[in-house]
Design a protein around this nucleic acid. Structure first.
Length: 700
DNA sequence: GAGGGCCAGGTA
DNA sequence: ACCTGGCCCTCG
């Protein structure tokens, strides 16, 4: 055989490279073998990035492993080049990514795109910082700190210190201690020589965890967020991969961080919808971290102030054990919650402003701002004695009901009259053009459609003919305006949308915030008003009640112990009762039981198949679904122009969605069937895109 | 997804 | 005898 340049010697040892190509087609979701030229022998290490010729073109891929020979019958091509010898795909992350792809009927390539940040050559070349210890020190085990408030806390920490895989469903006690508790858990794992991955919903929570981590020795940590920029993101990610830091804290994408000797995964506030990845295959951080803890045999700490149905399911299945506070610690930490029924008070108060703010709420806010104990509406005589003493016991925290301070007002949405309805029959006002919800942007504007933007100057109710509108959900801007008038001289601050405050001072002020955007108040809020509960609870969503309670608990947790929280909702509602008693676990257990009866998640596994009608019908029909699978629909999904991703223009096809439901035990089988159906479609080049989503967040 | 082979049916 | 389009398969 003639010796051309292409015939140069192969690697003498393990000349075959198994490569995962970066192509997200279901039917190509498997390794392909290539030959390793001798020149690449030392750089072509498992986990490195390579470039290969595939179906005639050059594509990126990851070298999974080296082998002596190949099963493949035909001729093997050679690696085109080793992009970098840095082993970015560790065995643990490969195993996890494969499991996540299988769980969500997705492809390995899609998951790896979420898991491994783009390469940055400069950051990669940089040697570990001078003076950085080549070997991370094992720090001393920290004191338990505020974990002493949890009966099982010491046992949990002891297990971490011994490297045992304990898994906790955490119900955090209200107050500002949770970041420190996460830091202590991570530091305890570090003392056993183990690493920790911490995932929180957003950058503000991350800043709190970052600060707490700085307060305990844990062998070094980095924070990963989306807004870091490619170089810094890759630099920090590499620091974890190279074992220069023991702890990685970050938002969603950090769930895949390649921490060395992983011993603990932590997920804070697992009900926050930011934990759901919006890119295929749409994995949820709770599912990914649970899978990771399970496969890697690490401990897990998952929870928040609220309790999700999914976490309750994990407890019921015996996968996690509840980790809750001592009852007396809870009584000492929780605010004093009361319900003010919206409708009843509405009739008594004449002025438009007070119509939405019952007198109890106004009195609570007024006395909290002033710090006037005598006018405080709190029925203190009926308050448990230990709470009253507990308030003054807490060092550095003034007595909640006595000292003046900021008052938090939680409003459900930003904007000005975010949704409006007929004043007479209360039917929601909808756009005559596309059926989208109408909104009013400012004080004197004409209502317009939130979906298509059409103006509705001469709106009339199609049901009863009235032309008068009323607020269905009053947004933050309007509430701020009303409250400013009710409390002249008190500063009003707003937080929400793209204007989020991280913190407010102890000075009396009205702080109007949308859920998730509540600033932390130095020393805690003197009171909180939770408005428009009926609007939150009335949403047509399976998770409406759970989500409403989660938002309430998160806001109420920022309030000083014993200080008043007034929720504008019917006290008889289970969610309101759960808030008053600060008992999200019982609420969630009841919720899970109800959903089980109705055949809803998490009692069952669901898949959503979305696309143009014929494609969806064909897909569902041809997929070899498990025997116990039940197909619901398909139905037309409401997707007016521009609301369904970049694909859908004004002339896009109408989208249909079918839901497929199976018992929990059939989840993997369902995912396999859907993946196979995708593989068949993509191999046959069937035009229309069909989106498959397992456990979609909103099954409205 | 891209490229290619293969067959059917039509065209010169 | 040759071109074209559709179908289906492989891709290492």
């Amino acid at each position: 055989m003639a010796k051309g340049p292409k015939d140069q010697a192969l690697s003498a040892r393990l000349p075959v490279a198994q490569v995962a190509v970066d192509i997200s087609l279901a039917h190509l979701d498997r390794p392909f073998d290539y030959l390793v030229p001798a020149t690449m022998d030392s750089s072509a290490v498992p986990g490195c990035r390579v470039r290969v010729r595939f179906a005639g073109q050059l594509v990126d891929g990851y070298l999974l492993d080296r082998a002596e020979s190949s099963e493949h019958q035909g001729r093997l091509a050679r690696l085109e080049r080793v992009t970098s010898p840095e082993p970015v795909l560790t065995p643990e992350i490969f195993d996890l990514a494969r499991a996540v792809a299988d769980r969500y009927a997705g492809t390995l390539a899609d998951v790896l795109r979420l898991a491994i940040p783009p390469r940055h050559a400069t950051a990669e070349r940089e040697a570990p910082e001078a003076g950085h210890p080549a070997h991370v020190e094992v720090p001393e085990r920290p004191e338990p700190g505020s974990w002493v408030r949890y009966p099982a806390g010491q046992a949990f920490l002891a297990a971490l210190a011994e490297g045992r895989p304990v898994r906790a469903a955490w119900s955090a006690l209200p107050g500002p201690e949770w970041p420190a508790e996460i830091a202590v858990a991570a530091a305890t794992a570090a003392a056993a020589g183990r690493g920790t991955v911490i995932v929180v919903p957003d950058a503000r929570d991350l800043a709190r965890v970052d600060a707490a981590l700085a307060g305990v020795p844990q062998g070094g940590h980095v924070c990963l967020t989306a807004d870091l920029g490619p170089a810094e993101r890759y630099r920090r990610w590499l620091a974890a991969r190279r074992g220069l830091v023991r702890v990685v804290a970050g938002t969603r994408a950090a769930m895949f961080a390649p921490v060395c000797h992983l011993g603990l995964v932590v997920l804070w506030d697992d009900g926050d919808d930011l934990h759901a990845e919006p890119r295929a295959p749409y994995p949820h951080a709770r599912e990914v971290l649970a899978l990771r803890a399970h496969r890697s045999g690490t401990a897990a700490l998952i929870g928040g102030f609220a309790r999700t149905a999914e976490l309750t399911q994990l407890v019921a299945a015996g996968w996690a054990r509840p980790l809750t506070g001592r009852p007396d610690a809870l009584r000492q930490a929780m605010p004093h919650v009361r319900a003010a029924p919206d409708e009843a008070e509405l009739a008594r108060d004449a002025a438009a402003m007070t119509a939405r703010l019952p007198s109890l709420a106004l009195r609570s806010a007024r006395s909290a701002l002033a710090g006037d104990a005598r006018s405080a509406p709190a029925d203190r005589a009926s308050a448990p004695a230990d709470r009253a003493s507990g308030q003054s016991d807490r060092a550095g925290r003034p007595d909640g009901a006595l000292a003046g301070g900021p008052v938090l007002v939680q409003v459900p949405r930003r904007g000005y009259l975010a949704a409006i309805a007929c004043a007479r029959c209360r039917a929601q006002a909808r756009c005559a053009v596309c059926g989208g919800p109408l909104q009013i942007g400012g004080s004197h504007e004409v209502p317009g459609c939130r979906w298509c933007g059409a103006l509705a100057a001469d709106w009339a109710c199609p049901r009863c003919g009235s032309d008068r509108l009323r607020a269905l959900v009053t947004g933050a801007a309007r509430t701020a305006e009303e409250l400013g008038r009710a409390f002249p001289g008190v500063p009003v601050r707003t937080s929400g949308g793209d204007h989020v405050l991280a913190e407010v001072s102890v000075e009396p002020a009205l702080v109007i915030a949308t859920p998730g955007a509540e600033p932390v108040a130095a020393g805690g809020y003197a009171a909180a008003l939770l408005l428009d509960g009926w609007a939150l609870l009335g949403r047509p969503s399976l998770r409406a009640a759970e989500e409403t309670l989660r938002r309430w608990l998160n806001a109420a947790a920022l309030v000083r112990p014993g200080a008043p929280v007034v929720v504008l909702a019917d006290a008889a509602l289970p969610a309101v009762q759960a808030l008053i008693r600060w008992d999200p676990v019982t609420f969630s257990e009841r919720e899970v039981a109800e959903r089980a009866q109705l055949g809803f998640p998490p009692a069952v596994r669901m898949a959503a198949v979305t696309g143009p009608a014929p494609a969806v019908a064909d897909f569902v029909g041809s997929a070899g679904l498990p025997e116990r699978a039940e197909v619901l629909g398909p139905v037309l999904v409401e997707t007016p122009a521009g609301r369904n991703g970049p694909e859908s223009g004004p002339d896009s096809e109408p989208q249909e969605r079918a839901l497929i439901r199976v018992p929990r035990s059939g989840g993997l089988e369902l995912a396999r069937a859907l993946h196979a159906a995708q593989a068949q479609r993509s191999a046959r080049k069937e035009g229309a895109v069909v989106r498959v989503q397992l456990d979609p967040a909103e099954v409205a």
